[in-house]
């Protein structure tokens, strides 16, 4: 009887543990870039047509490179977001000048976000990252999270520095700092 009771408890614990596990595991960056792309439609002057997003990575950091690869794979030939089609362009963090004409920069984990953020502000380019340290520090305009639920944080002063403004309804649904 005691064995059965113990087994029942174990079974219940296993079921509860299993429920707590995410059903599908997405590679880091793949879902976040989808969220980042969709936020562009909530700018006061949203882009349309082909929009280039620079995916900034640090080639010396494997995690950063892997995230960049996941993102480029997720974007593929183009990711539709509202009336825009977003295409990705890998950008080495150490040679931002070679990024060319990009609408926004997406910073992978591990890049020196202070430097990239400063460059973004100088070029009046929107900067986005899943690394919340970037937006919390004011280097990035926006931080995005996809798991376990979508979260968006906008740094008010960083947005003001590049002249980015978001629609009122969107602002009421996100975290502003």
């Amino acid at each position: 009887m005691r064995v059965e009771f113990t087994r029942s408890l174990l079974s219940a614990a296993m079921v509860i543990s299993a429920l707590g596990l995410p059903q599908i595991c997405f590679a880091e960056g793949a879902r976040e870039i989808q969220v980042a792309g969709r936020t562009l439609g909530f700018l006061e002057n949203p882009p349309s047509g082909r929009v280039v997003m620079g995916i900034v990575y640090d080639p010396s950091k494997p995690g950063s490179v892997a995230e960049k690869d996941e993102i480029m794979g997720s974007i593929g030939a183009g990711m539709t977001a509202g009336s825009a089609t977003i295409v990705g362009k890998p950008v080495d963090a150490s040679s931002l000048g070679a990024a060319g004409d990009v609408y926004a920069l997406y910073l992978t984990h591990g890049v020196n976000y202070a430097a990239v953020g400063a460059a973004g502000k100088a070029k009046k380019v929107l900067t986005i990252s899943a690394d919340m340290g970037c937006v919390n520090s004011g280097a990035c305009v926006m931080g995005v999270a996809a798991d376990p639920k979508v979260g968006i944080t906008v740094n008010h002063s960083a947005a003001a520095a590049i002249g980015a403004a978001f629609k009122a309804a969107f602002k009421m649904m996100i975290k502003e700092i």
Binding site: V35, R38, T39, G41, F42, K149, V150, I152, A169, M173
Partner: peptide, 9 residues
């Protein structure tokens, strides 16, 4: 629709 797509709810 767009907000539902963005926030997944």
């Amino acid at each position: 629709g767009s907000l539902q797509t963005l926030f997944n709810e």
